[in-house]
Design a protein around this nucleic acid. Sequence first.
DNA 1: GCAATTCGTGTCAAAGTAACACTTATATTT
DNA 2: AAATATAAGTGTTACTTTGACACGAATTGC
Lengths: 234, 234
Amino acid sequence: MTRYSRQTRLLAAIDCIIFGFDGQELKVLLIHRAFEPEKGKWSLMGGFIQPDEGFEEAASRILLQLTGLKGVYLEQLHAFGDPARDPIERTVSVAYFALIDIHKYEKQLSEEYHPEWFPIGSIPKLIFDHARIIEMGKEKLRYKAALHPILFELLPEKFTIPQLQSLYEGIYETGLDKRNFSRKVLSTGLLIKLKDKEKTSSKKGAFYYKLDKRRYQAKFQAFLNIIPNAHKLS
Amino acid sequence: MTRYSRQTRLLAAIDCIIFGFDGQELKVLLIHRAFEPEKGKWSLMGGFIQPDEGFEEAASRILLQLTGLKGVYLEQLHAFGDPARDPIERTVSVAYFALIDIHKYEKQLSEEYHPEWFPIGSIPKLIFDHARIIEMGKEKLRYKAALHPILFELLPEKFTIPQLQSLYEGIYETGLDKRNFSRKVLSTGLLIKLKDKEKTSSKKGAFYYKLDKRRYQAKFQAFLNIIPNAHKLS
DNA sequence: GCAATTCGTGTCAAAGTAACACTTATATTT
DNA sequence: AAATATAAGTGTTACTTTGACACGAATTGC
């Protein structure tokens, strides 16, 4: 026996939602689709799964192609299998989302795709079901970030507490009390205070912190509860 | 343009983890695989995705085939894509998990598969990567049930609070204080007390409750936090 | 009518949460 | 050099939630 008989075979693709944070709002990196159909339209970065390539492997490859980045936070979001989602030929898509430091991304790498960052609230019209994929990705990011310290993946190695707070405020589109916020994040024990300050955004300057990577690994599953009333989230 | 050229096509299957609760422990329904390879070995219930069939649709079909049940709680768990997971031919699997009332399941329906319930702690050797799929399913169920009221799906329409508590204790393999437990579940406002009692398991008898379906829909996203120290879960 | 069993409930101390305002450090302006 | 403007950093208090803990109530079988 070498194959299963009388079964339909189909294409499998990976699509990546690439999230970044510019200091103000959550953004998504989109490309101009490189081939027909819908060539030139806005799309998530994606690609077909190659023979002998696993899903994570394919997702990393695609991410590397567009951003030049390796070792990035990458998580499977959902598999999309509507028979009509690609009009040319049935293609299932396994969607991943990646969290990257937006400053590490070098635009010039990928001339071919003319990528651009879009605020999560102003996504252009997208091909196929990519709008729905992004919607689900945004929800999962909010959900997960309310419980686990993953948003650090969107920041540079050194960051200030006000920057971290802006990030949470941007993701949840809400204001947070800075006294409560700082008390909570510091109480996790995940942050190490550095000696230098970030001075561009205030006269006084804010101390830099970095992640305590050992504890980050260990406490990853711990619930942060940064967001008051996280249970009211959709 | 009718097809994408130079891309490999592959098989796509659905596998279903069917969870049930017998009053003592969490169980999984397994079958004897019906065809080669590994014919007769223990396996999750599954099947190939048919042309023009979406994932949820396929998962429902497969569940119906084995259990005769419709309208069951069904959620996508994860897509598995290791190129070598099926030795015959590359097959990706989209795994779903279902929560059913174990008493509604009628064994005789599915002669073909010789299905059996196994306690989650005593799963036999399974084909392919099904052991890992179940492991992930168990974790996701625990994770999700700590935050959302999904375990009701495992109980009959009418149930008592002691039964509900046994369920939580079974899922989390822990003991719970009945005073605190009852206070918490009642405070959700999801339960409606009925006038009759369940009398088989105690002399005094325990009042039946049923779910308030309106509030269940509305509060589904609400965090229950039934499990003290849920953040210590793996 | 006595014993045995499981159901059902209340209190209290501790921890966690959310609301709230002022001082500090520094750069810029006058 | 003094005044001003700006964002950083910090502490207290009231309230809510949590977890630990024990006994009376209802019923059955002996």
